[in-house]
């Protein structure tokens, strides 16, 4: 699971071309979106990019974007849980 999380963090930094943030800086349970103390403060465009990146990297798709999927994108933890549950075996 930890390996998956660090892969996700690497993916976030690379796919979103983040500057001044390394994978190590991302806190597992901090919110990825919106305003918060230790979060990344990503925006809605980043969400779209991230969705594409998750599909490319892990083969996991989000067919419908709804409140439910937004929950999976809340933090690295939630994203890791969703990906590991849905990753094609």
């Amino acid at each position: 699971m930890n390996e998956l999380k660090s892969r996700i963090k690497e993916m976030i930094v690379t796919a979103l071309e983040l500057e001044d943030v390394t994978a190590a800086d991302i806190v597992d349970d901090a919110p990825l979106f919106g305003e918060s103390e230790n979060g990344l403060g990503l925006d809605s465009i980043d969400a779209l990019e991230l969705g594409i990146a998750v599909k490319e990297n892990f083969g996991v798709t989000f067919s419908v974007v709804n409140e439910e999927t937004k929950k999976h994108f809340y933090s690295v933890d939630t994203l890791a849980a969703y990906i590991s549950a849905n990753m094609p075996k």
Binding site: D20, V21, D25, E35, G41, D43
Partner: peptide
């Protein structure tokens, strides 16, 4: 660290403009 300076300004801007155009 630079990230904290960025975040200071981002936080200030969030009061006035949308995240996308920050």
């Amino acid at each position: 660290p630079k990230l904290e300076i960025n975040n200071f300004f981002k936080k200030h801007l969030m009061q006035f403009i949308e995240n996308t155009v920050s």
